[in-house]
Nucleic acid binder design. Structure first.
Lengths: 301, 301
DNA sequence: TCATATTGTTCCATTTGCAGAACAATGTTA
DNA sequence: TAACATTGTTCTGCAAATGGAACAATATGA
């Protein structure tokens, strides 16, 4: 430790306050022998006596009085920290920064988010719905929802919150220009919008239809690392994308996307809730995770 | 220790300030392993993480930021204590409360006291010259000059500063009324002013004249526990007192006292410098003691 | 005045916490 | 891209701090 241990300053403050080693020891939950020794050590380090102790009375030295001013402040800060910690333990509080795809928020979590805000008035929720892939630690996010791949970062933990059935989608304009595939092999003549995997490598397509299985890597017109971006690209007519049905649905309804090879489906996409470590989680984070999970177990078991 | 160790708050503050465990460890003079462990312990005690640490970057949690406010304050107090202590070590300073017989101050120490005040401008000297026997600890005295007996108190330490030859003295008026003794045995017909010893028991007289020795306990007209009081009583004509020649001298010069049995002397009186403990002495006290001792070695080596 | 209760200090077996090195993770540079 | 440098964490023998009991000192009360 440095030279003057604040621990001993705390003990000194408590002793001065209690006016007795024994009472201070009792309040501190320490044996009086330790209190006595710590004060002695402190005095040795400071090079001067702090209190003159008869077995009956305790008198502060002039220097002791000077020091007490500082020691009191240390004790006050310790009390403040204790209060702060207990408050935090009791109820979720503070800023909670969450990033998720905007589709995810609007389509799936609006009710849950509203309920969360209502239930935890001490939490101020900050939602980031930008499509970019945020830096969880660097930008101080508590939680991030990721689709598709989960980052293999030792500092991060993740929890699977939902699995979405997926299929191929494209814009009507694109299909009008390039033709509408009728069998998987037709895809080789099409522009594919591919999802980038963990190592920024394009992942090929796997198509399933009952027991049938087709695999291939069509020419990539563009690639991105999140399904949401693929949907945007497909809507703009850039090609065919394999994305979750649930997220394509609103676009289909608006006529901006149509299903390609409707008999075939692509492997399901997984949504992950990513957060930094799992060693000690703030109450606010724990509360949010729980609420997200119950929201999904209620929806699709 | 209590629950939240201020030591760990200090370490936390240093880490946050340095922005790195290694640098903080270096500044604290601790191995980085200790810094790492202490932060972990603190987080466990608080039940929440304070900082998210990549090997390259360090990001404070929202809670960490809240806590930092308090931790900084602790660190500031520690710095203040360090500065205070170093200032104290360097030069004597603060109040120095000293009690001594007024005769002692005026007859023997005026020059020395003036020199002390001049040499140590940061010390404010408070002299108590009251004849009463002060309570060293209870009244917050740093030093007390005592004549005759030294208190046998385990909490106190004492140093012998001077030995004063003594004899019998009385007021001319008293001798005119009761007669002037010519031999020691005549004293049994006189009123004696006796010095009270350690246990408030009157101490008998011992007279010396060359090789001759006389002992006796004349009837006590009054008794006191300090030679100064005996002088006052003798001057008032209350009887004969055995007191230091040096302190009787001014009264003799003024004709208020005369030597009784001038061939005989009484055992020397000793002056003691009493102070609380000797374990850790304030610089101001040490400086005063040194100056008193040199003053006396220069006078009567 | 003597017994009692309470205080601060000292002692020593036990345990805690430390220091240093090895390790794992992650940027950096050639 | 591969060797390197630097960071935070983990491990382990060992030293230092702890805490309960015995002790010494001192008010208090009968």
């Amino acid at each position: 430790m440095e030279q003057y241990e604040p621990n001993d300053l705390l003990i000194f403050a408590r002793v001065a306050e209690a006016g007795s080693f024994s009472r201070a020891a009792e309040r501190l939950g320490l044996p009086k022998s330790t209190v006595s020794r710590r004060i002695s050590v402190l005095e040795d380090r400071l090079g001067e006596r702090l209190m003159l102790r008869t077995t009956r009375r305790l008198a502060l030295t002039e220097f002791g009085n000077q020091l007490l001013e500082h020691a009191r402040q240390v004790a006050a800060e310790v009390d403040a920290v204790k209060a702060l910690s207990e408050y935090r333990r009791a109820q979720p509080s503070g800023r909670l920064r969450v990033s998720m795809p905007s589709d995810f928020a609007t389509l799936l979590l609006t009710d849950m988010l509203a309920a969360f805000v209502a239930l935890h008035p001490a939490v101020s929720l900050e939602l980031d719905l930008s499509p970019r892939r945020v830096d969880l630690i660097g930008e101080n996010f508590d939680l991030v929802v990721r689709m598709g791949d989960l980052p293999d970062d030792a500092m991060l933990a993740a929890r699977r919150i939902a699995v979405f059935p997926s299929g191929l989608y494209a814009a009507p304009g694109y299909l009008a220009e390039h033709g509408n595939p009728v069998a998987p092999d037709d895809l080789h003549q099409h522009d594919a919008l591919l999802l980038l995997g963990r190592n920024s490598e394009a992942v090929g397509w796997t198509l399933l239809c009952g027991e049938q299985r087709w695999e291939g890597l069509p020419p990539a017109r563009a690639s991105a690392n999140s399904p949401e971006l693929l949907i945007s690209l497909a809507r703009a007519g850039a090609g065919i994308a394999a994305v979750p049905d649930y997220f394509a649905a609103p676009n289909v309804r608006r006529g901006e996307l149509v299903r390609v090879l409707p008999d075939w489906r692509t492997p399901s996409h997984t949504a992950w809730l990513v957060f930094p470590g799992r060693r000690l989680m703030p109450a606010k984070t724990r509360a949010f995770i729980n609420m997200v999970e119950t929201a999904f177990t209620n929806v699709d078991g």
